[in-house]
């Protein structure tokens, strides 16, 4: 079983709902984003970049690519970062020493460090914290906790707390444009295999040799132009 995600750039409308629902469900502290969406070359949301004399505004969501050949895992000195038997790259918060070597190794800039005590928002009843409210362990390893230890690295887990129980990641259930498809890439009958079948796809940073399991289906914009 190899979990993978396909992102259809033709369908993506750049709304950032995936990034936000990810943050909401995974208790990402303020300033931490496992998932981000930007337009290459454009200075700001809703602005464009001129290519060949024409404006473009392509939306590219990026989160952990769950690389088959994950540089972050290779460099992690304690094995805190590991790949589980679904191919999901996870971080054991109890083994991370915060050396940030994985951050330097990851070309996708998706790893986030808890530079301070993770906090919620000050509100009506003192501090409010969002997110899946219980710890989640995989074979004893703490791969999700609603209140992160300070000084550890975190990133997208494919929503391990859901996928391990047969669910799919929040960004995929939550994409209003249905641009994200998740599933077992080794199963030819799976939704993702079916969706990608016969379609052109690409991966980000192919030259790094990381073999990502997040596949991008290109937009039709600019086709044949």
């Amino acid at each position: 079983m190899r979990y993978a995600m396909a992102i259809d750039l033709d369908r993506c409308i750049g709304c950032r709902t995936c990034a936000v629902i990810c943050k909401d469900h995974n208790a990402e502290p303020r300033g931490i984003w496992w998932n981000r969406v930007f337009s290459p070359g454009a200075p700001e949301y809703g602005t464009s970049v001129i290519v060949d004399g024409m404006p473009r505004m392509e939306f590219v969501p990026i989160s952990c690519q769950h690389c088959e050949n994950a540089p972050c895992q290779q460099v992690c000195p304690t094995g805190a970062t590991y790949t589980d038997d679904t191919g999901t790259v996870l971080v054991d918060y109890e083994k991370c020493i915060g050396c940030r070597y994985c951050i330097t190794a990851c070309p996708y800039e998706v790893r986030q460090f808890n530079w301070s005590k993770p906090d919620g928002v000050e509100g009506v009843d003192g501090e409010y914290r969002w997110g899946y409210p219980e710890d989640y362990r995989q074979d004893g390893r703490l791969v999700y906790t609603p209140v992160r230890p300070e000084g550890v690295v975190e990133k997208c887990t494919f929503c391990v707390q859901y996928t391990n129980q047969g669910g799919i990641p929040a960004c995929c259930t939550g994409c209003p444009a249905n641009a994200r498809i998740f599933g077992d890439i080794e199963d030819p009958e799976s939704e993702i295999s079916q969706y990608m079948s016969g379609r052109q796809w690409l991966v980000l940073g192919e030259s790094f040799g990381t073999k990502p399991k997040v596949y991008y289906l290109p937009s039709t914009r600019g086709e044949g132009e």
Binding site: L9, R36, P40, V51, V110, P218, T220, G222, E223
Partner: peptide, 14 residues
């Protein structure tokens, strides 16, 4: 960009 192999741009990171 799709269908535009170059140029390429960096994306902002958190």
């Amino acid at each position: 960009l799709s269908n535009e192999p170059s140029p390429s741009w960096a994306l902002p990171a958190s």
